[in-house]
């Protein structure tokens, strides 16, 4: 039980293990779990935000960055991935109606 040494003692833990700090899950680097990395093709993406709705980890982020495609279509924003939290589940790729997300094997 070597890892127990850095963790708080029973009387240092809030009663019943209650978490007193709201939203602290952002600290967990779920990105480390990833075996496949989703990559969004900004050209193909139609900004429907289905991936944003489906992502179980809230790892799809909307950025205020206008974008113009090669074919001349203009978007007021772009869609990106927060790789610190994206765990590589592939749900976004599965749900994307235009197949704009590719799952690429991570090379570590």
């Amino acid at each position: 039980m070597s890892m127990g040494e850095e963790l708080p003692k029973y009387f240092e833990i809030p009663i019943a293990g209650t978490i007193l700090e709201p939203g602290n899950t952002v600290k967990i680097p779920t990105g480390e779990w990833r075996a496949f990395r989703p990559i969004i093709d900004k050209e193909k993406c139609v900004r429907c935000l289905l991936c944003w709705a489906y992502c179980p980890d809230g790892a799809i982020i909307i950025v205020d960055q206008p974008y113009k495609t090669a074919s001349g279509r203009e978007y007021k924003f772009s869609v990106e991935i927060d790789y610190y939290h994206c765990k590589g589940c592939g749900i976004c790729a599965q749900e994307c109606p235009v197949k704009a997300i590719q799952m690429v094997e991570e090379v570590k």
């Binding site: 029973y10 009387f11 833990i13 019943a16 293990g17």
Partner: peptide, 8 residues
């Protein structure tokens, strides 16, 4: 974590 919380 569980054990310490139950020990409480």
């Amino acid at each position: 974590w569980y054990y310490e919380i139950k020990y409480q």
